[in-house]
Design a protein around this nucleic acid. Sequence first.
DNA 1: GAACTCACG
DNA 2: ACGTACGTGAGTTCT
Length: 419
Amino acid sequence: MTERLSEQGSLALFTDVEMPLVPVLAEIERNGFLLDVEGLRALSKELERDLDQMIKAIEGLAGGEFNINSPKQLATVLFEKLGLKPIRKTKTGYSTDEDTLTQLRHSARIARADCELSEPQQTQVHLCGCVTGIGESGDQAAPYVAQSDRRGDRTALFYRSESAKYSGEGRIRITNQRSVYRTGRPHLALRRLQPDRAAHPAHLSQDPRLLAVFAKGEDIHMATAMEIFGLPSSQITRDMRRVAKTVVFGIVYGISPFGLASNIGVPQADAKKYIETFFEKFSAVRALMDRNIEEGKTKGYTTTILGRRRPIPELQSGDPVQRGFGERMAVNSLIQGSAADLIKVAMIDVNRRLCHELPHTKMILQVHDELIFEVPEKELEEAKHLVKTEMEATGKKLGLSVPLKVDLGTGHNWRVAHP
DNA sequence: GAACTCACG
DNA sequence: ACGTACGTGAGTTCT
């Protein structure tokens, strides 16, 4: 199918990996996974109680009942009834998102209370299942299943599979921090590709500094922090590492000094400096981005590492704003789409070997850059070895200039297993 | 169904 | 002067 489309000069929206991926996805759906229903129910109750209390407190400060889930009503309370100063507007009124509330919290108790409310409310037990097929719109990654919430101490995790939805037999498995070790339960193992998917940008850009970092197996965010701040590793704080991480991600999304500043909470001038320094130190990354954008403008689409195309008509727009969007989309598609290519190849290869060698080990989830398996306790060591070997081989197979590394976590629930 | 807000990567 | 980080799915409210 791919070939015919290509021959027609049409768009190769799919690469050769998508078709062989389909049976793997089908198997994941069939496998389903277990869910600690009782644990989640208990957690849900507890959160509901806390939520109730917080709402009461907020309504006390507001001087009356209102629906805090309604941005419109919240805006009325904050900006009209209480006379707070709006931070920014949305299409239809004043924004009441988390960022706004955070800014308001310094001047108003109600905003403070409302900020605190965000946490438990969003960790309510809502079982978000989001198994989709392969990107129906043809653009890049197409997540298969993913949604969890790792904020706060009481993080609950929500995973659901399509098959479980239909089987109605509780073949869903979960994981929250309350589920205790239970013998006889399948072991859960996670594998995570190169931290933060920065390996293929290094490969694609051939940036000497980035390549060196990966060749030595160093911590990518530590390395960029050292370059950005011009300090030795001994002087890099956790916070600096975090900032560096945001800078790197922001850059591949086409962030502006304005955006970076508001994201990490530093003056715009500092943000500008971080971005500039990054491009000075890793100039090949800039060149890669420029190349990608130029190519996109000429061809009307961008291409991932395996040749998956995404049309971006905005690149040819006369409107500078539209063009800017197009440019960010182009760069982002290259990076995210290539990461998706890698994980798909890994899924196919790992699954093939599991079928033959360890049929009791089941792939149960893919979460962008990680794969999750249920493994019988007695074959855990074998499974770990197989998955690690096979995933790391993916990089070599695709000719990446940097060795791919995977992190591992194991445990009887997601929280414990997650690195 | 649009708009907003949130979660994850 | 302008807007200002990509892309995915989901829940809730309101039109």
